[in-house]
Design a protein around this nucleic acid. Structure first.
Length: 214
DNA sequence: AAGTTTCA
DNA sequence: CCCG
């Protein structure tokens, strides 16, 4: 099987151009569904509350997380995907249909037939950040990663396959969707410290990251 | 280790 | 003091 290579450029839409093989930036793709997405996030969080996970080494993540479907979990032992929320022992809430539909449509733009089984929901309060890392705990690297930004803007860093590779910065705004796969699937990426600001959905940023975890 | 801290 |  041959994997699909693609790239999309959004020159000067926000005074920034970005072009990288295997990465598509869909500006405003989620705008039409933003309120439904936020409502679904709140419904998931009502059953599986946001929490600050501990990483190996003992550090506490500044980003608060919960999951729908198969969940990403960190603790002192390592990183893993789990059907159960360790906080409750119960399965993570089901993936909301508005999540699944949006992720599928966004991935299709980039040439993927993508049915995620998990969505990691990140909540960034001002001061929160996400260090450079790879998404490499999934079972199927032929599936892309789909990332949805809601709320306050953030500076996203996209690097290469080695931590030391140069990093490109791009501002992600409310409603933007990023799809990466193929040669970019295991690229290092991260989010710079969120700056305080005002947004109709609140003074924070949500990020939905869809994966084929199992 | 997707963490922090410290230093040059 | 912040940044890389």
């Amino acid at each position: 099987m041959r994997w699909v290579s693609f790239s999309m450029t959004q020159p000067d839409l926000f005074g920034e151009a970005f072009e990288r093989e295997g990465v598509a930036i869909l500006r405003g793709f989620a705008l039409a569904d933003d309120m439904a997405l936020v409502a679904a996030i709140k419904a998931v969080a009502a059953a599986a509350p946001f929490r600050h996970m501990i990483v190996p080494g003992g550090g506490r993540m500044s980003v608060a997380m919960t999951n729908a479907g198969i969940g990403w979990v960190a603790d002192t032992k390592g990183y893993r995907y789990d059907r159960l929320d360790p906080l409750s022992g119960e399965p993570w809430p089901d993936m909301p249909s508005v999540f699944l539909d949006l992720a599928h449509r966004a991935a299709a733009v980039a040439g993927f037939d993508f049915t995620p089984d998990g969505c990691l929901i990140n909540r960034y309060e001002p001061g929160a950040k996400m260090g450079l890392h790879q998404d490499i705990n999934e079972g199927d690297y032929s599936a892309p990663i789909v990332s949805v930004s809601l709320g306050l803007p953030a500076t996203f860093q996209f690097g290469g396959l080695k931590r030391s590779d140069p990093v490109e910065k791009i501002t992600l705004h409310h409603g933007d969707v990023v799809v990466w796969g193929g040669p970019a699937r295991k690229a290092f990426h991260g989010v710079l410290t969120l700056r305080a600001g005002h947004h109709p959905i609140g003074g924070h940023r949500y990020n939905l990251t869809f994966r084929k975890a199992l």
